[in-house]
């Protein structure tokens, strides 16, 4: 714990330096006007309304779809939830956060399906979103990941802004008061500055966390992932999900599923074409559903996926699917 505090202090100091430099450069390069812009930025963050506490009332708590193409399954699912308009309002600045962690083609199921990402972006714009931003803190070289996952091209074609996340200067320090092991983190400015964000992970096996789904996808919005691994990974995953700005929707892509060697995967032999999709505001429920789905391909008891129970304990949602209104659709 002692050591952790030291690290965070250092990060703070670093940030203060960065801010100083930033302000100085801004003064030189852009003149006084930039300060005004910065001020309004800060204001908008303070006055923002968060969907964190009250979930939006919908007919179903969770929608599960099987047997279609990614974009078709999403259209079905979101319609059952009452349409994208329920979650995204006119003028919203939206972030769509897929998993783009690896320099892999869509067929290898290491990254979220680009067709799904594009469909979500389109629907955000149809619902009146002012802008949609896409990013991920990748593991492989971000330019290769963005390109070879097919997500950059698909997202840009759908009108989204695709921004990098490979430098610490893109991240802003936030506090996570409800966290047990993780009480501070640096979160990508796109998330910090947005009005709404949609979490779009892909369901995969994961050597460390056992499974990677919606909650694990949060590790792509933070800078210092090493801290998670070094300080009880499962607890940190649950902790980071208590960050005040929660996603308005979690969409788990299970169109292709990496059953083994995850999260990177070796080759096609790790991949199963399962054609599934799960949608919910409840991040624990949607991950529990996805984990059950995974369990049919390869044994994965929920107890092994430690962050599920830990998140439930933090009141992030429920693992008790029986208590929820679930719509299952087979196409």
């Amino acid at each position: 714990m002692e050591e952790y505090n030291l690290t965070i202090d250092r990060i703070h100091i670093k940030n203060i330096h960065i801010m100083d430099r930033r302000n100085f450069l801004r003064a030189v390069a852009l003149g006084g006007a930039a300060f005004a812009i910065k001020d309004t930025d800060a204001m908008s963050i303070m006055t923002q309304s968060f969907a964190a506490d009250g979930r939006i009332a919908t007919k179903y708590d969770l929608v599960a779809v099987m047997g279609g193409e990614p974009e078709v399954m999403f259209r079905k699912a979101i319609a059952e939830m009452g349409g994208m308009g329920k979650f995204i309002k006119k003028g919203d600045k939206v972030v769509v956060k897929p998993n783009i962690g690896w320099d892999k083609a869509p067929e290898l199921a290491a990254n979220t399906n680009p067709k799904l990402v594009a469909e979500i972006i389109k629907q955000c714009f149809s619902a009146g979103a002012k802008e949609v931003t896409v990013f991920d803190h990748t593991c492989d070289d971000w330019r290769k990941c963005y390109k070879n996952s097919g997500i950059e091209a698909a997202a840009k074609a759908a009108g989204a802004k695709v921004v990098p996340a490979d430098q610490s200067s893109y991240y802003k320090p936030v506090s996570i008061p409800e966290g047990k092991k993780l009480t501070k983190a640096q979160i990508h400015e796109a998330i910090v500055n947005c009005d709404k964000w949609i979490n779009v992970p892909i369901l995969k096996n994961h050597g460390g966390a056992q499974l990677t789904m919606s909650m694990k996808n949060y590790m792509g919005i933070v800078w210092d992932r090493g801290y998670f691994h070094a300080n009880d990974l499962q607890q940190c995953i649950a902790d980071v999900c208590t960050y005040e700005k929660r996603p308005v929707l979690n969409v788990v892509d299970a169109y292709r599923m990496m059953k083994t060697s995850g999260p990177r995967g070796k080759n096609e032999s790790d991949v199963v074409l399962t054609k599934g999709l799960f949608l919910s505001q409840d991040i624990v429920a949607v991950d529990t559903a996805a984990a059950n789905f995974f369990n049919q391909v390869r044994e994965m008891p929920l107890s092994k996926v430690g962050h599920l129970a830990k998140a439930q304990e933090l009141k992030l949602g429920t693992m008790n699917l029986d208590a929820l209104k679930i719509k299952k659709i087979k196409l």
Partner: peptide, 20 residues
């Protein structure tokens, strides 16, 4: 040392020469 999950190494291994 900590008896917690990690697996970052295996996560990055392209051939699963490091596996959990």
């Amino acid at each position: 040392t900590d008896e917690t999950n990690c697996g970052a190494c295996s996560e990055h291994c392209p051939t699963q020469a490091v596996h959990m």
